Measured scan of single mutants.
Amino acid sequence: NQASVVANQLIPINTALALVMMRSEVVTPVGIPAEDIPRLVSMQVNRAVPLGTTLMPDMVKGYA
């Protein structure tokens, strides 16, 4: 199964993503693939992302 990017902490709106904020986990539904974690670093989220939430492409500015 494909691992997705999951929030490792609460990520406030407009926060630039850092490695420590993300982990990979096999979840349903599938979100952003875990292999894209390096690409996500320094991109901003466009909403608050609670701990344990799967990151979806529409949550990250400039990802989709």
Rank of each mutant, 00 (worst) to 15 (best):
A64L: 15
V60Q: 00
T53L: 12
D36T: 07
G62C: 05
V6H: 00
D36W: 10
A48S: 14
V26Q: 10
N46L: 12
V30R: 12
S24A: 13
A18Q: 12
T15P: 00
R23H: 06
E35G: 12
M43T: 04
V60T: 02
V27M: 06
T54P: 06
V6L: 07
S42G: 14
P33A: 10
A16M: 12
Q2M: 13
M56K: 08
P12A: 10
N1S: 14
N46K: 14
R39Q: 11
A16L: 13
V41K: 05
P33H: 11
P50A: 15
V49W: 03
A16R: 11
V20I: 13
S24W: 10
V30T: 11
P57Y: 09
S4D: 00
L10S: 15
M59I: 05
V26G: 04
A34C: 05
T28P: 00
T53Q: 15
L19E: 10
R23Y: 07
P57D: 05
D58P: 06
V45W: 02
V60N: 00
D36M: 13
I37Y: 03
S24R: 12
T28W: 12
V30I: 11
M21N: 06
A48H: 15
L19A: 14
M21C: 04
P33Y: 08
E25D: 12
V20K: 12
G62R: 09
L55G: 01
Y63L: 06
P29G: 03
V6N: 00
P33M: 08
P33G: 06
S24Q: 14
L17S: 01
I11H: 01
Y63D: 03
I32A: 01
Q2E: 09
T53V: 15
P57K: 08
A18C: 06
T28K: 13
M59F: 13
S24L: 08
M22A: 00
A64F: 11
T28D: 11
P50W: 06
V30H: 14
S42A: 07
G31Y: 01
I32L: 05
A16F: 14
V27H: 03
A7G: 02
A7I: 06
T53P: 00
Q9P: 01
N14V: 03
V45Q: 00
M22D: 02
I13Q: 14
A7S: 11
M21S: 05
A34F: 07
P57G: 06
T28C: 05
V6R: 03
L55C: 02
M56L: 14
A7R: 02
I37C: 04
A48P: 12
A16W: 10
Q2D: 08
V41N: 04
M22S: 01
P38D: 11
L17F: 02
P29R: 04
